[in-house]
């Protein structure tokens, strides 16, 4: 039985990796992927807590199912916007998309 804190450390690590990805990736899709990683980190947390903290109540896992659904929807919307960006900017490198500033 892997103790709870192992899971927590794993999810924290994943969260940080995802965060690092968001900061460093140049392309919008890269950022989208790292966001998904961060999301999954949260999912791991939920499942872990559902197992260890409230074994009898599966609410945590239900939450995960919802988040997966939501992340799918978000990905769709995100990709649609990235396509629109590509059509207008001819690039999806985030550091080149800043017409609007101060």
């Amino acid at each position: 039985m892997i103790p709870l804190h192992h899971y927590l450390i794993l999810s924290a690590l994943l969260f940080c990796i995802g965060l690092y990805g968001v900061f460093t990736r140049r392309s919008a899709i890269g950022i989208l992927l790292s966001l998904e990683i961060m999301l999954n980190a949260a999912n791991i947390n939920f499942v872990a807590f559902s197992k260890f903290v409230t074994p009898d109540n599966p609410i945590g896992q239900i939450f995960v199912i919802f988040t997966i659904g939501v992340s799918a929807a978000a990905a769709v919307v995100g990709l649609a916007i990235i396509v629109a960006i590509y059509r207008n900017y001819k690039t999806i490198f985030v550091d080149e998309i800043n017409i609007m500033k101060w």
Binding site: V22, A28, I31, L32, L35, V77, G78, I81, I82, A84, I85, R87, N88, Y89, V94, I97, N98, I99, M100
Partner: peptide, 14 residues
């Protein structure tokens, strides 16, 4: 068609 609108969409999304 508008550049600004799509940029705002992207920023808001990310």
């Amino acid at each position: 068609g508008n550049v600004k609108s799509s940029e705002s969409g992207l920023k808001y999304f990310l």
